[in-house]
C-alpha cells in the first residue's frame, strides 16, 4: 500500500515551528522508548510496546472510516485477522520473507474489503453498522471453521524469524524498531489522507452524505475507498501482529476485539487522529499498569469507554482541537495565500 499512496512532495512553506512536534514525537518513539525499555531489560515490555504500536495503527485505520467518514464499523478486527492470517500462512507454509508478507497482507485485505464493500456500501447509519457486524462475524467464522486452510481454533505458529535484506531482526529491540518504522510510516500516510482535501471530502460524507452527493461528491466511491484504505492498514497491523507474536488464532480477531478498537477511537475522540493514537495507548497501557489489581483488562475497556462517552462526549482529544493542533504543528499541507493567511487543505 505504501508505494501506492505516497504523499505529494510539493515544497511546503515549512517553518521551523512546523518541525518541532514531529521531531519530538520521532525522538520519543525511536530514542526515549527504546532507551527506557532497554534499561528495564525485560522482553515482556518490548512485547507490550509492539502491541501498543500495532493497536495505534489499528485505531488510526478505523479512524479513517469511523472517525472521518462517519461510518460506524463493527467488524474491523476481522480485516485485522485477514491480514494476520495472510501474513502468518504465507510465512509459515510458503516461507515468504517479511518484506513480501506485509504488502501481501495489505493487498489481500484490501481486496476482501473491496469485495464485501460492493454490496454493502450503499447502506447508511445503523444498517451499515449491522452489515459490518455480520461481515466481521462471517470472516471470523471462516477463520474458525475452515480448518484445512486456517488450522481452525488451533491457530497458526510462525517459526521463521524476522529478516529484512538478510539482516536478522528477531532481537526485541530490532523487532521494535521494525514495527515502529512501519507503524510511523502508516500513521504519516493516514495523517495525509485524513488531513487533506480528500479528508475533507470524507468529512462531508459524515456530516451529510445526501448534501455532499448533491454537491458533486461521489459518495459511494469515496465510502468504498475509505473502507478499503482502512482495511489495508488493518491488514498491515495484522501482519505485524502475526510476525511479532509468532502465533495467531481466531479468538484474537473476534467481536470483542472490534469493540476494543472502536472504543479506542471513541475514547480518543471521533474524527481526531491524535485522539485515536492516545485512545489506543490508553486502552493498551492502562490494563498493563493495573495488572497487579487482577484480570481487569476488559472491564477497564468498558468503564473507560462509558465514562468517556458520558463525561467527554468529544473524546480525550476532540476533533476540533486536534485539527487546529495539526494545522499549527504539522501544517505543511495547510495552504496559505501570499499574506500567509490559511485558506484550506491542499
Amino acid at each position: 500500500m505504501s508505494d501506492l499512496a505516497n504523499p505529494p512532495t510539493a515544497a511546503p512553506p515549512s517553518t521551523l515551528r512546523n518541525l518541532v512536534l514531529p521531531i519530538l514525537i520521532a525522538i520519543v518513539i525511536f530514542a526515549v522508548v527504546p532507551a527506557v525499555l532497554t534499561s528495564f531489560g525485560r522482553g515482556y515490555f518490548w512485547q507490550i510496546a509492539n502491541i501498543a504500536l500495532i493497536f495505534v495503527l489499528l485505531a488510526a485505520s478505523l479512524h479513517v472510516v469511523t472517525g472521518v467518514a462517519g461510518l460506524l464499523h463493527l467488524g474491523h478486527a476481522a480485516f485485522y485477522g485477514v491480514g494476520a492470517y495472510t501474513a502468518g500462512l504465507l510465512a509459515s507454509e510458503q516461507g515468504m520473507p517479511f518484506l513480501v508478507t506485509i504488502p501481501a497482507a495489505a493487498i489481500v485485505t484490501a481486496a476482501i474489503a473491496f469485495l464485501v464493500a460492493l454490496p454493502t456500501m450503499r447502506l447508511v447509519s445503523i444498517y451499515f453498522a449491522v452489515a459490518t457486524l455480520a461481515i466481521g462475524q462471517m470472516i471470523y467464522l471462516v477463520l474458525l471453521n475452515w480448518v484445512s486452510f486456517t488450522h481452525g481454533p488451533n491457530g497458526v505458529l510462525i517459526f521463521s524469524g524476522l529478516e529484512v535484506f538478510g539482516i536478522d531482526l528477531s532481537s526485541p529491540i530490532a523487532t521494535y524498531f521494525l514495527v515502529a518504522v512501519i507503524v510511523s510510516a502508516s500513521i504519516v500516510l493516514i495523517h495525509r489522507i485524513s488531513h487533506s482535501y480528500y479528508g475533507n471530502a470524507l468529512r462531508s460524507l459524515r456530516e451529510d452524505d445526501q448534501c455532499a452527493d448533491a454537491m458533486g461528491v461521489r459518495t459511494a466511491r469515496l465510502k468504498m475507498e475509505a473502507f478499503v484504505i482502512s482495511a489495508a492498514f488493518a491488514g498491515i497491523a495484522g501482519a505485524l501482529w502475526a510476525h511479532t507474536t509468532g502465533y495467531i488464532s481466531p479468538s484474537d480477531f473476534d467481536f470483542a476485539e472490534s469493540i476494543l478498537i472502536l472504543a479506542m477511537v471513541v475514547v480518543g475522540g471521533l474524527g481526531s487522529l491524535p485522539g485515536a493514537v492516545i485512545g489506543a495507548l490508553l486502552l493498551i497501557l492502562l490494563p498493563e499498569v493495573l495488572r497487579d489489581v487482577g484480570d481487569v483488562r476488559n472491564i477497564m475497556v468498558g468503564i473507560v469507554m462509558f465514562l468517556s462517552i458520558l463525561l467527554l462526549p468529544k473524546g480525550l482529544f476532540g476533533e476540533v482541537s486536534a485539527l487546529s493542533m495539526i494545522r499549527r504543528q504539522f501544517g505543511d499541507a495547510w495552504r496559505r495565500d501570499e499574506n500567509g493567511k490559511g485558506i484550506g487543505w491542499r
Binding site: 476488559n298 472491564i299 468498558g302 468503564i303 469507554m305
Partner: peptide, 15 residues
C-alpha cells in the same frame, strides 16, 4: 452516543 454507551455497559456487565 447511546449505541456506544450500551456497548460499554454490556462489556462492563459481561466482565
Amino acid at each position: 452516543a447511546t449505541l456506544l454507551s450500551s456497548l460499554a455497559v454490556s462489556i462492563i456487565a459481561r466482565e
